Simulated scan of single mutants.
Amino acid sequence: MSVPAPLEQDALRSADLSDLLGHVHTCWDNERRSLSRQLHDSLGSSLTALTMHLGLLMQKMPQDAALQDRAVHMKQLLMQIVETNRQMQIKLWNDKLEFLGVRVALGEAVEQFGQQHQMTARCSLPEDELDCPRSHGIVLLHTLEEALRNIVMHARATEVDVIVDDNEDEVMLTVKDNGIGLNAPLAGVLGQLSGKFGLRTARERAAYLGGTLTLAPGAERGVTLTIILPKPAAA
């Protein structure tokens, strides 16, 4: 029985690790989606019922200023909890991906990013819904969110352009900013992202689907992030 050469052993170990990471990420996505649905179906419905009951109670309460002030304070607190619950659901899982499709989820993520951070954020999308598996949509959205998060934290940018291309063989997402650019040499820059685990995770998720994630200096300034995911061969 022949023993694999060291290089072959490294390749097998790398492939096993990639499969393991892919499985972990899939399980993680499913768990986050499940938790988000529980927050919506259980806690969300209970909070809605409490809001309705409190509204009815306020209508029947004596017109006592102290009681009315306390009830108003309770209603405001309850509305804050409702909003916090909604934000937690979104952070755990973007339901737009499930119900409205990848195209809408990506577009709204860019629009909300621009509004939240008062930054010019442009998005170019195909006219039709992306023709790719659910797993690809999850990775594209995750990568976009991570890219936008890094722009806010590190780029000092004022403009962001997001471009999505969809053809017969692959789907590609490009995120460009006009920030300060890369602080490390381009060669091996992804491998040097010690501490930037979000982008490293996005790279591994792309690799698990047979794709690539690269960073490059912008044409004039800033950084260009590109993720390319090949489409599965038709059965």
Rank of each mutant, 00 (worst) to 15 (best):
A121V: 12
L106G: 06
I163C: 13
A202W: 00
T143C: 07
C27F: 01
L67N: 04
M1L: 05
Q59H: 04
L67H: 09
D64E: 09
H23W: 09
V102A: 11
V104F: 14
T158F: 00
M153T: 10
N183C: 12
I227R: 08
L77Y: 01
D29E: 03
M88H: 02
Q87Y: 04
L39N: 05
M172I: 14
L190R: 06
I180A: 09
G181C: 13
G191T: 07
A187W: 01
C132F: 03
V223C: 11
L67R: 10
I163D: 15
G179R: 14
L148T: 07
Q76M: 01
I81D: 00
A184S: 05
A65P: 02
G22E: 09
Q192H: 07
L35D: 03
V152L: 14
E146H: 01
T174C: 14
G22K: 08
S45A: 15
I228C: 10
E129I: 05
L56K: 11
C132Y: 02
S135P: 00
R32L: 12
L199G: 09
T224R: 15
P4W: 00
S42E: 14
G210L: 06
V82F: 02
N30M: 06
V104Q: 13
H117P: 03
C27N: 08
S36D: 02
E108R: 12
D161H: 11
F113G: 00
R13A: 09
E220P: 00
D64L: 03
L186T: 12
S36N: 05
D64I: 05
L50R: 12
N85W: 05
G211Y: 08
R70W: 03
A49T: 10
E127R: 08
G218W: 04
W28K: 06
P232W: 02
P6V: 09
A49E: 10
G22L: 06
S18H: 01
P230K: 10
S45E: 15
F99C: 06
D128V: 07
E8N: 02
L225E: 08
M1E: 01
S45M: 10
P6K: 08
P6D: 08
Q9D: 00
H117C: 08
Q80I: 03
D169W: 08
S34H: 04
G211E: 04
G101Q: 04
M153L: 15
Q68P: 00
E129A: 07
N30A: 13
E204M: 11
E31Q: 13
A65E: 12
W28A: 11
Q80K: 09
H40D: 10
P62T: 11
I227V: 15
S14Q: 12
G101N: 08
L182K: 02
Q38F: 05
P6C: 08
L50M: 13
V110H: 04
V110G: 03
I228M: 10
H136L: 03
Q116T: 15
K96P: 01
A206T: 03
R156V: 04
Q63L: 07
L186Q: 14
P230H: 07
D29I: 05
F99K: 10
V175Q: 10
V3K: 04
W28M: 03
